[in-house]
Simulated assay, not measured.
Amino acid sequence: MPHTKTSDGVRIAYQVRGDGPPLVLLAGQANDHHWWDDVRDDFSDVRSTVTIDYRGTGESDKPHLPYSVERFADDVVAVLDELAVHRADVYGTSMGGRVAQCLAARHTQRVRALVLGCTSPGGQHGIERSGEVRRSLIQSDPEEARQALLKLMYTPAWLAMHPGPYHTLGDRSMPAHARRGHLVASNGHDAWDALPGIVAPTLVLHGTDDLLNPVANAPLMAARIPGARLQLIQGARHAYFEECRDLASPLVLDFLDQKAPLR
Rank of each mutant, 00 (worst) to 15 (best):
P196I: 12
H86L: 12
S249D: 11
E70W: 02
R172K: 14
L253I: 15
P175H: 13
Q147H: 10
L205P: 00
G235P: 03
L220Y: 11
L116H: 01
V111Q: 03
Q101P: 08
A260H: 13
A78N: 06
G188N: 03
P2D: 08
E128Q: 15
V77P: 01
T4H: 03
L195G: 08
R55M: 12
L220F: 13
D190N: 13
D41K: 06
W36S: 05
T4K: 01
L149Q: 13
L256N: 12
Q139T: 13
L203H: 06
P219G: 13
E144N: 07
H34T: 15
G126N: 07
C118D: 14
K62G: 09
H182R: 10
P196C: 08
G9I: 09
R71W: 00
H3I: 12
A73F: 03
L149E: 12
G207Q: 11
L159P: 00
V204R: 04
I127D: 03
L137Y: 06
V204P: 03
N187Y: 05
P22V: 01
D254N: 14
N187H: 14
G56R: 08
T49N: 03
V10K: 01
G96A: 13
L230S: 10
P66M: 11
G188V: 09
A113I: 01
R110V: 02
S140E: 13
P219Q: 10
Y54S: 04
R106L: 14
V50Q: 08
S249L: 12
Y240H: 15
F255V: 09
W36E: 07
S7M: 02
V115G: 01
P201M: 10
R55D: 08
G58N: 04
S130A: 08
V99I: 15
H238I: 10
L25H: 11
A105E: 07
I198N: 06
V16F: 05
W35M: 05
